[in-house]
C-alpha cells in the first residue's frame, strides 16, 4: 500500500480526506487520556481500535487542519465559525458528566475559518464569527478531534450546526447543509490549505435513558432496536459501494426513522464538500454506544492510498 503523502501544490488547497468520527464521550473515557479526569476500565474497543487505525492513516497524510462540523455547537442564527486562535479550558459533557471532564488546550486555524465564513456569506447564507474568548468548545468537536489526532498537533476549524431541521424540515436541513458544503469546498480549494474534513455524529441516535452502574460494562451495550440496526447497515452498505448520492437522497427518511444525528447536517455538508464521492468508503468499525449506532469511516479521494479496511 502506497502511504506516501500526496504531492503538495503551492497556493492550491486540497481536501485530502473526509471522516465520519462519532463523538460519544464514552470513547475518550474508555481511552483514559491524561486530559480526561474520570478513569475507566476500557470499553467500546471496536470503535476505539477503528479510530486508532484511521488516526494512523491520517498521520501518513500531509494536511494543515481538521475542519469539524459539530452537532453540539447548536446555532439557530446561521452557521458560526471560531475567530480566535487559541482556546484553553475544560469541557464537561452536559449529558455524561461522569465520563467526560476533559482539559483542552487547542489551536484554531483562524485564517481558514475566516475563509470558510466569507465563502459561506458570499454564497448567501447567514453566518457569523465567534470571537468571545470565554466560549467553551463543545464536546463533539473535542471527542472527534482527540480520537483522530491524539497528539493535538494540528489546528482545528469547528463549524456550528445550524438547526434548520428543527425550524423547517429534514429536507431543508439537507439542502442548506449541502449549500454550506459547496461553499466550504470552494473556499478550501481557493486557499493554500490541505484539510481533513470531519463529520462528527452517530448514525441512529436513540439512547437508552438509563446507564449501567459501570458505564463501560460491555455486556449492557447493544443497539436500541432492530429497526435502527437495519437502517444503519443499509447506510454502511451504500457507503461501501460508493453510493453517497443515494445516501444523501435517503437522508431525510433515515433521519426521521432513526432519530439520527445526521439531523445536524454534518454528513450532507461533508459529502458535498468532498464532491459527492462515487468511490467506496473505508469502514473502520461500527458499534453501539448506549443504544446509538456509530460508524468510523473515511473517504480517501486518492485511489493510490484508498484502502479496503473492513
Amino acid at each position: 500500500m502506497n502511504r506516501l503523502p500526496l504531492p503538495h501544490v503551492d497556493s492550491m488547497g486540497e481536501i485530502v480526506a473526509g471522516c465520519i468520527a462519532p463523538h460519544p464521550p464514552h470513547v475518550v473515557y474508555a481511552d483514559n487520556p491524561p486530559q480526561n479526569e474520570p478513569h475507566s476500565e476500557g470499553g467500546w474497543e471496536t470503535l476505539r481500535w477503528g479510530y486508532t487505525k484511521l488516526a494512523n492513516k491520517l498521520k501518513t497524510l500531509d494536511y494543515d487542519a481538521l475542519v469539524i462540523f459539530t452537532p453540539h455547537w447548536q446555532t439557530y442564527i446561521g452557521t458560526h465559525f471560531l475567530g480566535l486562535p487559541h482556546f484553553k479550558s475544560k469541557s464537561v459533557d452536559p449529558v455524561f458528566p461522569n465520563l467526560f471532564q476533559f482539559n483542552y488546550d487547542l489551536g484554531v486555524d483562524v485564517e481558514l475559518s475566516r475563509a470558510l465564513h466569507n465563502a459561506t456569506k458570499e454564497a448567501g447564507m447567514v453566518t457569523m464569527m465567534m470571537e468571545n474568548q470565554d466560549f467553551r468548545i463543545d464536546y463533539g468537536t473535542i471527542v472527534s478531534a482527540h480520537m483522530l489526532n491524539r497528539d493535538w498537533d494540528k489546528p482545528i476549524v469547528p463549524i456550528s450546526s445550524n438547526r434548520s431541521r428543527h425550524y423547517y424540515s429534514v429536507e431543508v436541513m439537507n439542502e442548506q447543509a449541502r449549500a454550506l458544503g459547496r461553499a466550504c469546498r470552494k473556499a478550501i480549494l481557493e486557499s493554500d490549505k490541505r484539510v481533513v474534513l470531519v463529520s462528527t455524529h452517530s448514525l441512529s441516535h436513540r439512547h437508552f435513558t438509563t446507564e449501567p452502574p459501570i458505564p463501560e460494562d460491555m455486556s449492557k451495550q447493544h443497539i436500541y432496536n432492530h429497526s435502527n440496526y437495519v437502517w444503519d447497515m443499509k447506510l454502511i452498505d451504500l457507503m461501501r459501494e460508493g453510493k453517497m448520492q443515494e445516501v444523501i437522497d435517503l437522508m431525510p427518511e433515515f433521519t426521521e426513522q432513526t432519530m439520527a444525528e445526521t439531523d445536524s447536517g454534518s454528513i450532507s455538508w461533508m459529502m458535498e464538500a468532498l464532491g459527492m464521492p462515487d468511490y467506496p468508503a473505508e469502514i473502520y468499525g461500527y458499534q453501539s454506544v448506549i443504544g446509538t449506532g456509530n460508524v468510523v469511516a473515511a473517504w480517501d479521494p486518492n485511489p493510490e492510498t484508498r484502502e479496503v479496511v473492513l
Partner: peptide, 13 residues
C-alpha cells in the same frame, strides 16, 4: 464558571 451562549456569544460572557 463563565458561561457563553452558543448563539448570542457577541452579547458577552
Amino acid at each position: 464558571w463563565t458561561h457563553v451562549d452558543d448563539d448570542f456569544h457577541f452579547l458577552g460572557s
